[in-house]
Design a protein around this nucleic acid. Structure first.
Lengths: 216, 216
DNA sequence: GTCTATACTCTGATAGAC
DNA sequence: GTCTATCAGAGTATAGAC
C-alpha cells in the first residue's frame, strides 16, 4: 500500500527532520485502524471512538495526526485508488490476449483475497454514489478503461479473442472478483464459516473466461 | 413489492376498521422515502430528517407510523427479502437445464434494473456483515441455495450442463447482475451518464453462460 | 506527543397543543 | 393525525494540563 500522506501543520523549509519514525508509525497504525472501521461500517457508521480503540490511542491523539474524520477517510481512499488500478495497468498489449486477460482476472481476484477491507471501503464509496472519488473515476479510471476497451476490441477484430463487448467484459471481472470480498459475509453464511469464500473461485472463473474468450 | 407491515399500537379485537386508506398510504410513502435514503446512505448515514423531507411529512409524524428508525429499516428488509429470493425459487427441476439457468439470470438482471434501490439496500446490509438479516441468510437462503446447488449438480451429472461448481455458478449470477445496480454510479461515470448501465449486459451474460454451460 | 475535561452540533425520540 | 418545541444522547472537535 502506498502512503504518501500530505504533512500536516506548517511544514516550512526549516524542520524536515521532525518527521519521526514514531510519527510515521502512528499514522500507519491510525490508517490501518480506520480502514478496519470504515470498511466495516461505512463513513457515517464509523466513529472516532471506534478508530481510537482499534488503534490503541486516545481520540484527541488521533486528531493530532489527522485534521478530522474526513481527512482520515480521504487519506485512505487516496492510498487505495492507485493500488486498485494497478492490475489493469499491467495489461500488456504485446502479450498473448487470452493469457493477458486471465492474468488480469487472477491479479484482481488475488487483491480481493489479500485486501478485502480495501475492497469494501471502495464498495461503500461507490454505493453511496462515489461522492469523494467521483473526479478520479471520471478522469483517470475512465481513461484507463477506455484504453483497455480499445485494446480488447482490437484483439477481437484480429480474431485473437472471441468478439465480446469489452466494457462488459471488464465490468464482469470487477463484479466477480470483488463479490468475494464485498459479499464475503453472505458467502460465509451460506457455505459455512470455516470455508475460505474464494475457494474454487479461481478455477471457476478460469473455466468461465476460457470458454468465453476462445476464438472461434 | 410485498407490504405485510405489522400493525403498530394496541390493535385490540375491537377496532379493525381503523386502518384507514390514508394510514396505509402514508406507510407506503414513508417506506418508499426510507428506501430512497437508506439505499443511498446506509443505515447510519440516513437520518430521519432526510426521510421526513423525502416523504413530505414531519419527523414526529414519521415516528407516529413507525416505532423508530430501526423499525423502518427492519420493515424494508423484511419486505425485500421474500421478493429477493423469488427468482431462485422459480427454477423448475423439470425444465430444460440451460434454459432454466438463463431464465434465472434474466429475472435477476431484470430485478437489478427495476429495483436498484432494493439491491443497494441489500448490498449495504451485507457489506456491514448482515447484522439484521443474518438469521434469514443462515436458514432460508442457505437452504434454498443448497437445494439449487444439488439440482445443478444433478444436471451436471446427467451431462445436461457442463460440470461446473454449482455454488460459484450461483454466486457469479448474483455478482454480475447485482453489480449493475450496486455499482451503477461507477458504470455511469465510465460509460457516460446518458447510457443505461445495463445496456448490453443481458446479451453479454447470455453469451457468457451459453458458452460456459453448453454440455461437451 | 499524549492525555482529561469539555464545548458544541447533530440526530433520534418525546411532550403536548391543535 | 399532524405539527412545534424540546429533551437526551451520541459524536466530532478543541482547550489546556502534563
Amino acid at each position: 500500500m502506498a502512503q504518501a500522506n500530505a504533512q500536516r501543520g506548517s511544514s516550512g523549509a526549516a524542520e524536515a527532520r521532525t518527521t519521526t519514525r514514531i510519527q510515521r508509525r502512528n499514522r500507519r497504525i491510525i490508517l490501518d485502524a480506520a480502514l478496519e472501521v470504515f470498511s466495516a461500517h461505512g463513513f457515517r457508521g464509523a466513529t472516532l471512538d471506534q478508530i481510537a480503540a482499534e488503534a490503541g490511542l486516545s481520540k484527541p491523539n488521533i486528531l493530532y495526526y489527522f485534521d478530522g474524520k474526513e481527512a482520515i477517510h480521504r487519506a485512505l481512499l487516496t492510498d487505495l485508488l492507485s493500488t486498485w488500478l494497478d492490475p489493469l495497468r499491467m495489461l500488456n498489449p504485446e502479450g498473448e490476449p487470452v493469457a493477458e486477460i486471465m492474468g488480469y482476472m487472477r491479479r484482481k481476484l488475488a487483491m480481493s483475497r489479500e485486501f478485502p477491507r480495501e475492497s469494501r471501503l471502495f464498495a461503500n464509496e461507490i454505493l453511496q454514489g462515489a461522492p469523494r472519488i467521483e473526479a478520479v473515476i471520471r478522469t483517470d479510471l475512465r481513461a484507463l478503461v477506455d484504453d483497455t476497451a480499445a485494446l480488447l476490441r482490437r484483439w477481437a477484430d484480429q480474431g485473437r479473442i472471441a468478439p465480446v463487448d469489452p466494457y462488459h467484459l471488464i465490468f464482469s471481472i470487477w463484479a466477480l472478483t470483488q463479490h468475494y470480498a464485498d459479499f464475503e459475509a453472505q458467502i460465509r453464511m451460506i457455505r459455512g464459516d470455516d470455508t475460505d469464500p474464494t475457494d474454487g473461485a479461481e478455477a471457476f472463473m478460469d473455466t468461465l473466461y476460457t470458454r468465453l474468450l476462445a476464438p472461434r
